[in-house]
Deep mutational scan, measured.
Amino acid sequence: MQRVNMIMAESPGLITICLLGYLLSAECTVFLDHENANKILNRPKRYNSGKLEEFVQGNLERECMEEKCSFEEAREVFENTERTTEFWKQYVDGDQCESNPCLNGGSCKDDINSYECWCPFGFEGKNCELDVTCNIKNGRCEQFCKNSADNKVVCSCTEGYRLAENQKSCEPAVPFPCGRVSVSQTSKLTRAETVFPDVDYVNSTEAETILDNITQSTQSFNDFTRVVGGEDAKPGQFPWQVVLNGKVDAFCGGSIVNEKWIVTAAHCVETGVKITVVAGEHNIEETEHTEQKRNVIRIIPHHNYNAAINKYNHDIALLELDEPLVLNSYVTPICIADKEYTNIFLKFGSGYVSGWGRVFHKGRSALVLQYLRVPLVDRATCLRSTKFTIYNNMFCAGFHEGGRDSCQGDSGGPHVTEVEGTSFLTGIISWGEECAMKGKYGIYTKVSRYVNWIKEKTKLT
């Protein structure tokens, strides 16, 4: 034993070699072989497995989906700052455009905790909710729209109204504003409101030439003092309507412009014939205590009207009353817009006519005020429907199939267009061939041609 100890002390290297040989010859039971080890760690190889990531292109799944990435790591994937920024906006807080917040056709661009709407022409605001041009839906104005110097929408209202708090709607500024039905039992019968379409306001006024200088022999019209197929109006439903009495009662109609003036057809009036105007009328054979009678003290036909040349060209006249009318729910003026808007309103496509005229061709006159909704007829169809001249200051309205029309005794009465609950004068009943005849239409004086003249002559002093 002493000898062994001496050998170990003198030859430590020998001992180490012996131990190493023993270990190498022993069977290893701690580690699995290569094949079995792979069965336990069965993990798919990654895209760049075996390579240094710093030297390969980034992978979106590896960089940002398996674990949260930084902007720089995302930049490695896209290799483009702009594309990385677009991805980053949604990656950080989701897609803010998912709810489609942009209105009126706006395009949404996502941002971090926010979004941006790219608005089409005519709109602005956070969600493109603000109209900035009158060309689109009248700028959301209830009545009139004008573009300011910086191309912003400025709404306005006709006389007797003021802008509401929203700067879009119009509200009454006087007790009985024009064009409004205020009798409670008839307010439910107000005709369907007309909503502004998209309009090209630059070209809204037709490029028409008034044929002022045409000389033409007097034409022989049949029954051209021209509501057939209409309905009984309720008291106060058309408070701007008046009836004219002269040699015979209810020979023509008219509309209240203001307390002192009536507008009617020029062919209705004769110099030297006494005319009485009755406002607030409903049943011409009954006294309903809503009527107001006034005498006409002055007749002003349009300066281009000449019955000797043509009885229905420039067929418009103004009547001055001896005493002002007292405005109330049964006696209310009709609204008159400017030339541009009167023309736009007419193009809405349908209007209402009213009167006490004959209820059928050569038949009896109506006792109760009649009204009828009539569609506008395109000019080409209008011209083809008659052998008589249709001037540019006239328009056609009615039904091709016949059966409904204005008729004798309705002449001078109103053709009105309702705009968001307020009625505007767009025409004056003038003439036609018979009444409600198939293929024939009622012919009306186009008020847009005469609004400046009306307003100039009827100013209240």
Score class of each variant (00 low, 15 high):
K347D: 08
Y115N: 01
T215D: 06
C69V: 04
I316S: 01
S329E: 15
G106C: 01
G21H: 08
I336C: 02
N245Q: 08
F87N: 15
S220A: 08
R379V: 09
P375D: 12
G58R: 09
R62T: 13
E456I: 07
L130K: 15
D315P: 01
T218H: 08
E98N: 12
F55C: 05
F345W: 05
A233R: 05
A317R: 01
N213G: 10
L346W: 09
E116D: 04
C108K: 01
P12G: 12
Y330F: 13
F71Y: 08
N306C: 04
E35N: 12
I300M: 07
P239G: 02
Y444C: 03
S406Y: 13
S169H: 06
I262G: 01
V199W: 12
A149E: 14
S11K: 15
H400K: 12
C407D: 03
S255A: 04
M437G: 12
K446F: 01
S182C: 03
L52F: 15
D150V: 08
L163E: 02
V243S: 12
G363A: 07
L103V: 07
N258I: 00
A9N: 11
H303L: 05
I7H: 15
G351Q: 03
F238P: 03
G409K: 13
V174Q: 09
T209K: 08
A307M: 11
V374P: 05
E142Q: 11
A9F: 13
V199R: 11
C396N: 02
F144V: 02
A380D: 13
I300N: 02
E129F: 01
L32Q: 14
C335D: 01
K168W: 10
P12R: 08
V153H: 11
L52D: 11
T287I: 12
P120D: 04
K311H: 05
K446L: 03
W431I: 07
I299G: 04
H267A: 03
E79V: 13
G94E: 12
G409H: 12
V451P: 00
H289V: 13
I390D: 08
Y352L: 10
N151Q: 09
V419G: 01
L14M: 09
C69H: 04
V451L: 03
G230C: 13
L346Y: 05
H314I: 01
P414L: 13
I112H: 15
E340P: 08
E98G: 09
C18H: 04
V174D: 07
R294H: 02
V326K: 08
N59Y: 08
L460F: 11
P172C: 03
T458C: 06
F78S: 15
W88A: 15
K51C: 04
I334P: 01
G94D: 10
T287R: 06
I17Y: 12
A317K: 00
V368E: 10
N328Q: 02
G403S: 15
K387G: 08
Y444P: 00
G349K: 08
T16H: 11
Q2C: 13
I309A: 12
A380T: 12
I428L: 10
T445E: 02
E270K: 13
T218K: 09
V277E: 00
L318G: 00
C128W: 00
I334Q: 00
V416E: 02
H34R: 13
I256M: 03
Y47S: 11
R180I: 04
T445S: 04
R294G: 02
F345P: 01
A366S: 05
E281K: 13
E323A: 12
L19V: 07
G272Y: 06
